[in-house]
């Protein structure tokens, strides 16, 4: 998923035999319901953004 996030210009999500999403990856990351349905995980870059409180304690 990281590769998709960093490099791809276009991403298609296949779910239930059909194209469930097409477009730029960055807009995909906002569609939580879809991500969950298609069993996809956010790229590391964004996932850690969400868990800021917890992870930053570890680093600094």
């Amino acid at each position: 998923m990281d590769l998709v996030d960093l490099y791809c210009d276009q991403v298609y999500v296949i779910n239930e035999q059909q194209v469930a999403y097409e477009g730029h990856p960055h807009q995909l990351w906002q569609q939580n319901a879809l991500l969950e349905r298609a069993r996809l995980r956010l790229p590391d870059r964004l996932r850690h953004g969400q868990e800021v409180g917890e992870t930053y304690d570890l680093v600094y």
Binding site: V4, C8, Q10, V11, Y12, I14, Q17, V19, A38, L40
Partner: peptide, 27 residues
């Protein structure tokens, strides 16, 4: 068993395109 149903896609020159979906989704 239907594996893919009515898929439409356009791949452009010089683009990097990904398909994602869980394992067994028909990728």
């Amino acid at each position: 068993t239907m594996i893919l149903n009515n898929i439409n896609m356009t791949l452009n020159k010089g683009e990097m395109v990904a398909i994602v979906g869980e394992n067994g989704a028909g990728k």
